Simulated scan of single mutants.
Amino acid sequence: MNITPNPADDTSVAAVCRNCKEALHGPHCHACGQPVKGLMRPLGSVLGDLLDSVFDFDARIVRTLKPLYLRPGFLSLEYFAGRQVRYVTPFRLFFFLAVLAFFVARLTVHVDGAGAGEPPQVFAKATTVAAVEQARDAQLAQMAQAKREMTGTPAAAGIVGIEAGEQRIREAADARIRELQGKPDSAGKAVSKAGKPADTQPGLVINGQVWDADKHPVTISWLPAFGNRWLNDQVKRGSDNVERLKRDPGAFKDAVLSVIPTTLFVLVPVFALMLKGAFLLQRRLYMEHLIVALHSHAFMCLSLLLVLLAAVPAETFAPDGTWLNSVFDWVIALLLLWVPVHLLWMQKRVYAQAWPITVLKFGVLGVLYSVLLAFAVTAAALIGLVEM
């Protein structure tokens, strides 16, 4: 029995493109780009191609991550030289590492919201001033530890939530101490059993007035009515979330970490524009600077991921004060130290300028980008406060 081969699976049979009728010389038409293999074929063949793509991506990830972390500037120079197909593309690499790093950050960075969320009840159980102070110091020590773990990473935006919790702990502890001593609060008002002034009315103060959606809304003259309504809706959400933040700082941390990757995606082309201005005399294309910016940010996300992963065994298997904990502290310190060294070395290799001018430009770019990053993370924190 004769079986007619399927032209979709055999380029030798499909001698011409079925779309534009041009002669075929491979698996894709050189004229219109249509592949010879379409989706109208057995499901097993389609799944096989999908698995090939997945495993090929995995192989390129392995070939890409090692030079990305250990060979500053190597990947960018490879792309400039036209050797690209063996590595993961810069944007895909950055996207993959950014999503992975901040996903791990949400899992590993913890804020002790339980202790900070109900300090009045915790202190209400204390019957002496010494017991209140002991409970206060224990909770503040836990939150200080959380701040130390977040310092120096993009997760540091969540520190504002921890500091809000610390302030509430101090206020609740002071109120309980005054209650035990039978003294009024600083305003001369009676203290309730919950440890707070009975007539305290929380409110958000804007331009010297307590914000109120009806009596004292935020109004910008040049904004249309719907713009001012939207702005006041966001203020209301943020104001409501402040109280939730005091009860659950972890929710704010998760909200901030979820918006930071998007913030970095916005900053990458801006950083490429800064590189373009710093090396204007080299007459490089903007896309070259963009590749450098993508590789730089991918490296920083990979560094953050390694720091987070190194902190997991340090917290799990190495209690504070032990020699093993000191080893992990040194590992994390070396990982953090490698970040500026790598980026400086990368700038030197890619742009090939003398060390003095390289160090000068690196310092200027670092300061400007740090300021820009601080504003961006602050904006992310505000967005996180509204969206939490």
Rank of each mutant, 00 (worst) to 15 (best):
M1A: 15
I3F: 12
N6P: 05
P7M: 02
D9W: 06
T11N: 10
T11V: 15
S12Y: 12
C17E: 00
R18L: 06
H25Q: 12
C32L: 08
P35S: 04
V36Q: 12
G38Q: 05
R41H: 07
G44N: 11
V62H: 04
R63I: 05
P67C: 02
S76V: 12
E78W: 02
E78V: 07
F80L: 11
Q84V: 09
F91E: 03
R92Y: 11
L93I: 02
F94E: 00
A98Y: 09
F103D: 12
R106D: 14
H110I: 05
A114E: 15
F123R: 01
F123C: 06
K125L: 13
A126N: 07
D137S: 08
A138V: 11
L140T: 03
A141Y: 02
Q142E: 15
A164V: 14
R178K: 06
A187T: 11
G188C: 01
G188D: 02
G188Q: 00
G188Y: 02
A190T: 06
A190M: 05
A190V: 04
P197T: 07
P202H: 15
N207V: 03
G208M: 00
G208F: 01
K215H: 09
K215Y: 07
P217H: 05
I220Y: 04
K236E: 15
R237Q: 11
V242T: 09
E243N: 12
A251S: 10
F265E: 03
G277L: 11
A278F: 08
L281T: 13
H289L: 04
L294Q: 08
H295C: 02
S296D: 04
C301Y: 12
L309G: 00
E315P: 01
F317A: 06
W323F: 14
W323I: 11
L324Q: 07
S326R: 13
A333P: 08
A333R: 14
W338R: 15
V341D: 09
V341H: 12
M346I: 07
M346T: 04
K348W: 09
V350I: 13
V350D: 03
Y351H: 03
A354F: 04
W355T: 04
T358Y: 05
V359F: 10
K361Y: 06
G363V: 09
G363M: 10
L365N: 09
I383L: 10
